[in-house]
Write a protein that binds this DNA or RNA. Structure first.
Lengths: 198, 198
DNA sequence: TTAGTATTCGGAGCGCTGCTCCGTTTTGTC
DNA sequence: GACAAAACGGAGCAGCGCTCCGAATACTAA
């Protein structure tokens, strides 16, 4: 798999100029199409928008997950980096956790269908799943550990389970006033909280 | 056998014998296929299993949701009817709510892909969504109200939001030991619970 | 029983998707 | 300018949902 360096973007140094250009064109087109048609949009549509053949997209992004992660990489990184910062700036580890989850939820609900794709058991999305986990799970674990250590919450909660649960709660139409995942997530956090009774 | 109830289809009284027979055959085949391939299984596959043409399935069950609800109708009804019973038998309304949710979760996680379909915003599943809501939402509301009245939980939780959240939490592969929706739902209920400040 | 008719059946067929294959074009190099 | 190597593009195949319509079947009336 793309021996791309970790957080970096050596945008294909040895690649040909047209290849580099096309990669960016496709990324831009995909970003636009994702907004209007969701991350499930037909590859043909993205190719048409980019004025490019389908094979070109598959060449640069072998799976749909690769394309999605490339489009949202910056925002995922920002979310990952926000963890330690919040831990330093918030009133308590629990408050940091709450704010970080808020960021994560904001990210998910504004990307049409992203949460759905994230939790899908479709093999095509496995890489997406993995990327999110690789990048964000350690951050979540750190926040969780800090909150446990501070006595804000009880021990035993697995970061993987929490993150996946939050992701799951964000699934679905985002324009239904009867359902706001944030309210349920707040409830979840409330349940996590330790009574602080001495 | 229930001369069949409100939301039910009279088992096709005026229909021709072969039509009635085929309806049952399809139902049985669909039930089998759903177990092995999930509720998203290709219609062709169900038709083949039933030894029937595709049009026959579409004639009896115009949308996939109709087929799914027909297959699981009994279990959904059982879940709906369990609500009042639990309320009468459990130690507290809160405990009744907890047990009822347990039933609901059991139902969802044992039907491969059902939770996914339930929360999908695909129009094809709208009827499924509606059926679940029509049948189970009042039950959930009753349990919730009782728990509020008993002071077990705080007011303000919307039954729709709770049910959908629970459904969402049940989405995904059901064989992942790292993720058990029940743990998160327990947390959610914990967050719902009022401190019993009496 | 038989003939007639309404009902039901079955699968070919259309449109849309994901993904690949391969002849053509572009790019970088000498 | 010539020539590989790299990249391109879209035709093409397979799988799916859903429909359409000639064929087969079950009821009914004589």
């Amino acid at each position: 798999m793309t021996a791309d360096s970790p957080a970096g973007k050596p945008p294909s140094r040895g690649k040909r100029a047209d290849a580099r250009r096309n990669r960016e064109t496709v990324l831009a087109a995909a970003a636009e199409v994702f907004v209007t048609s969701g991350v499930d949009a037909p590859i043909r549509q993205i190719a048409a928008r980019a004025g490019v053949g389908m094979a070109t997209i598959y060449r640069h992004f072998p799976t749909r997950a690769d394309l999605i992660t490339a489009v949202y990489r910056h925002q995922i990184e920002a979310c990952a980096e926000a963890g330690p910062n919040l831990l330093a700036s918030a009133d308590s580890p629990f408050e940091a956790l709450r704010q970080w989850i808020d960021l994560f939820v904001d990210f998910l609900v504004t990307k049409h269908g992203l949460a759905d794709a994230l939790q899908s058991d479709d093999d095509r999305f496995a890489a997406l799943h993995d990327y999110f986990l690789d990048r964000l799970l350690p951050v979540c674990a750190e926040l969780l550990d800090a909150a446990v250590e501070a006595g804000d919450i009880g021990p035993g909660t697995q970061p993987y389970e929490l993150m996946r649960g939050i992701g799951n709660l964000c699934i679905g139409r985002d324009d239904d006033p009867r359902y706001d995942p944030r309210r349920l997530i707040a409830l979840l956090l409330q349940g996590l909280r330790r009574p602080h009774a001495s």
